[in-house]
Design a protein around this nucleic acid. Sequence first.
DNA 1: CTTGGTGATATGTCTAAACTTATTTGCGCC
DNA 2: GGCGCAAATAAGTTTAGACATATCACCAAG
Lengths: 246, 246
Amino acid sequence: MREAASGQDVTGQAASRGLSKAQVIAQEVRRRIVDREWRQGDRIPDEAELAVEFGVARATVNKALQLVAEEGLLDRRRRAGTHVTVNPIRKATFSIPIVREQVEQLGMEYGHRLVAKRMAPLPADIATRMDLPQGQVLIHLRNVHLGDGRPFQTEERWINPETVPGIAEVDFRKANANEWLVRNAPYTHAELTFSAENASHRDARLLDTRKGQALLIVHRLTWNDLGPITFVRLAFHPGYSMSTAH
Amino acid sequence: MREAASGQDVTGQAASRGLSKAQVIAQEVRRRIVDREWRQGDRIPDEAELAVEFGVARATVNKALQLVAEEGLLDRRRRAGTHVTVNPIRKATFSIPIVREQVEQLGMEYGHRLVAKRMAPLPADIATRMDLPQGQVLIHLRNVHLGDGRPFQTEERWINPETVPGIAEVDFRKANANEWLVRNAPYTHAELTFSAENASHRDARLLDTRKGQALLIVHRLTWNDLGPITFVRLAFHPGYSMSTAH
DNA sequence: CTTGGTGATATGTCTAAACTTATTTGCGCC
DNA sequence: GGCGCAAATAAGTTTAGACATATCACCAAG
């Protein structure tokens, strides 16, 4: 009797190519939203009802709905129930790559050039971003990353040695900073900022282009529990574009 | 003796300010990774062991580890166990905003101007991106979004009416397309691409700036189950920057 | 009309147990 | 040594049941 009551067994068949029941249910929920069977602002049936409909345990429906809610399509509140989000603000994710792998993925041979390395006091604007006192002395690096010998990206980097034990011994002429940090200094929090700038004289020289050329600029800040790890300004070669993973 | 062996009850006390046991355990796992108690490539104790250590059910450890794995700090494979990721490629997430809310959040008054609306055949480059045949006729819009009367962003948009029922009746002079679509056409997949361009003559005119000025360009493609919904090219006013949410 | 309490309700979370599945390890056979 | 199969293992998933907790709705008292 249980069986018969439960609409169809959505989870049992066709659609479920290696997908878990929860994922199949999540898909079906998305479909109902996209097809407007459940409309913006509507309250959808509660977990217990859906569990009966799909013939699964409530915990499975819970997992499915949490998945969809994470994507931003559903709003869930205790007691109030689950509603279709009125303004689905969707998210897109960027992965923070290792430059070398990026270059090699494009089929080019990677190289890099250390332009400058010194200890230097933080300028005011960067100190503000990093939440550190102005004038604190950090490691300051300038690098150019090359693809097939041509400039791919310039990198200006400030590293906080207090949050990165072992950084002092690294020879950045050999191991590049990006890579060493990614491998050795896991972070708990990151912030990316995208903007565009006309190439300065220095950018133009390092990227082998002309002054004024529009460049994609990425600022990246990373933290761990001990505080800010590193601030980087990346300037990409003209024409470069950066996409979300999926 | 079991009890005594299980370190402390990490989940029971201080750290757990409204956090679930799974989250507290996830934090502790992150800490062990960041503090190098578990190093890159190490295999960590299996779920059953951690369940004993933390005094919770295996399912709870499972949830915690899945959380951390999603962030990219752990690699999990059946039978092989859970390992600390060697190359933690971390993710940063962008929300896809409604321009009006963006403008208003900056304390400016929002306005927009419809520059052009027509049905037009898809040019080759955009057809490729949208996975549609070249020459297919879509809705083509040009808009300028204003903040306090000054140009904030230009928008060039192609809309696929086949995937958006009801789009034909919309008057885009009143309701702007961005907003109407966000509210009425939920999508299941999106792709963002960032780049920089020197302002063309048209961009410069629409954004009230000079030709050659570096502009941040965002391309956004959205799909639902029926296929591609819309392609947008956004050009922001000079100096604009876009950051990850958190 | 406002405030405050109270109960109902839907989601949040956890548990113990079972089953599933991918993958590795090791053994036996050639 | 190499190959293939079987056993063991660890994560993946699901279930039923329980308790926790936020909050909404309603009603009573001020």
